[in-house]
Simulated assay, not measured.
Amino acid sequence: MNKSELSGIALIIVSFVLIVYFGYNNYQEKNRLKNDKLELTSQIEHLQQTIEKNNQIIADNEQSKRELENQSTEWQEQINEQLKNNDCANQLVPVSVSNSLYNRAKNLRQPTDTSKSIK
Rank of each mutant, 00 (worst) to 15 (best):
A59Q: 14
E74K: 07
N54T: 11
E52Q: 14
L68C: 03
W75F: 12
Q71I: 13
N70I: 06
E45V: 11
T73W: 05
I44E: 06
S42V: 08
I51L: 13
Q56M: 13
I57W: 06
K65Q: 04
Q63V: 03
N54C: 06
E52V: 13
N55P: 00
I57H: 06
Q63R: 06
Q63Y: 01
I58R: 04
E69K: 01
Q43K: 12
Q49I: 15
N54E: 15
S72I: 06
K53V: 13
Q63C: 04
L68A: 01
W75I: 14
E45F: 09
R66D: 04
Q63S: 06
N55H: 01
S64Q: 07
I57F: 00
K53L: 13
N54Q: 15
N61Y: 00
L68M: 04
S72G: 09
Q71E: 15
E74S: 10
I51G: 00
Q56C: 01
I51N: 11
S42D: 14
Q49N: 15
K53Y: 09
T73Y: 03
N55Y: 00
I58H: 06
E69L: 01
E74T: 11
Q56N: 14
R66Y: 02
I57P: 00
D60S: 12
Q48L: 11
Q49W: 11
L68I: 03
I51V: 15
D60T: 10
S64I: 03
Q49H: 11
Q49V: 14
N70Y: 04
E69P: 00
E69N: 08
S72Q: 05
E62M: 02
N54K: 15
L68T: 01
L47A: 10
K53F: 10
N54V: 13
N54S: 13
E52L: 09
H46G: 10
Q48F: 10
Q63L: 08
Q56Y: 07
S42W: 08
E45P: 02
I58A: 02
I51Q: 12
Q63K: 07
S64N: 11
E69Y: 01
N61G: 03
L68V: 01
T73K: 05
T73D: 03
E62W: 01
S64V: 07
Q49M: 14
Q71K: 11
Q56S: 10
I44M: 04
E74L: 12
E69G: 04
I58D: 05
E52M: 11
I44D: 02
Q71F: 12
L68S: 01
E62T: 00
E74G: 00
E67M: 11
H46A: 14
Q49P: 04
R66C: 00
E67Q: 10
K53E: 12
N70V: 10
K65S: 03
Q71H: 13
L47W: 01
E67Y: 09
E69M: 07
S64Y: 06
Q71S: 15
K65C: 02
Q71L: 14
W75G: 07
H46R: 12
D60K: 07
W75K: 13
N55R: 15
N70E: 10
D60F: 05
L47M: 05
E69T: 05
S64P: 02
E52P: 00
K65E: 00
K65P: 00
E67G: 08
S64G: 12
E67N: 14
S64M: 12
S64R: 02
